[in-house]
Amino acid sequence: MYNRQKAVDYANQWWNHANPAFPRFEDDCTNFISQCLLAGEAPMTGYPDRVKGWWIKGKSWSYSWTTANALFWHLQNSKKGLQGRRVSSESELELGDLIFLDFTGDGRVDHSLIVTSIINGVPYVNAHTTNSYHRLWTYEDSSAYTPNIKYYFMHITVTP
């Protein structure tokens, strides 16, 4: 079972610096999101296949651990363990759920965010790369924002 509060607590603790127990990347958003999911007790699967599953072990990890587009597709297609179900609106998200951003609208996910608070039905998120704490989910203040942006809302689930 996914512990949403533990995932959010981790996101709030580590939003502005790197946890030395994990590698750090120049584009660190999905590595950070994966750490949050792991802190929320999401089970890792697929080791040692870097293409399948979601995992980190030592100095090796799956593509879905570190790449927003790979995590997005993994969550939608996973049949066991960590999974995601796309929902149509930000209003359907809960704490610990994810939002994926496709800044240019080209169909490839560029960035990942975790919902860390919901105020009056509006999600706020934490993220890495440009470290963010309780930032408005729309990311309209981002230098990467374009009018073509697409948002993908992902409700996190875990199955045996």
Rank of each mutant, 00 (worst) to 15 (best):
Q35M: 06
I149P: 01
S143T: 05
R108V: 12
D110W: 05
D27K: 09
V87T: 06
W54N: 03
V87I: 11
S89Q: 12
N77M: 08
T45K: 07
S143F: 03
L82K: 01
G53E: 04
T129R: 04
V158T: 06
E92K: 14
R86M: 12
L136G: 08
L38D: 00
H111K: 05
E41M: 00
K79P: 00
S112V: 09
N120K: 14
R135N: 12
L75N: 05
E26W: 06
G96N: 08
I149L: 14
K79E: 05
R86S: 09
R135K: 14
Y124V: 13
N131W: 12
I118A: 12
Y145A: 07
G96A: 04
K80Q: 06
G105D: 07
S62W: 02
T104P: 04
I119E: 10
I118D: 10
T138V: 09
V115I: 08
G53I: 04
D28Q: 08
S132C: 08
G105H: 07
W65L: 05
F103K: 03
F32I: 09
R86I: 04
P147I: 01
L95Y: 09
S89H: 15
H74A: 01
L113N: 12
S64R: 07
L71M: 14
Y47E: 06
E41G: 00
Y133I: 06
P43I: 06
M154Y: 03
A42C: 11
F103M: 07
T146P: 15
L75A: 05
T146D: 14
L136Y: 14
L136W: 11
H155P: 00
F32E: 08
R135M: 14
A144C: 05
H111M: 08
P43N: 03
I156K: 02
H111R: 11
G53P: 05
F25Y: 13
T116S: 10
P147D: 07
G121F: 02
D49Q: 05
A68H: 07
I33Y: 02
Y151W: 08
D141F: 12
R108S: 01
D110G: 13
R135H: 14
P123T: 15
T129P: 15
V122E: 14
V115Y: 00
R86F: 04
L71V: 09
W65C: 04
T104W: 09
S142I: 09
S89A: 15
N148S: 10
Y139Q: 15
Y47A: 00
L136Q: 12
G81H: 02
M44W: 00
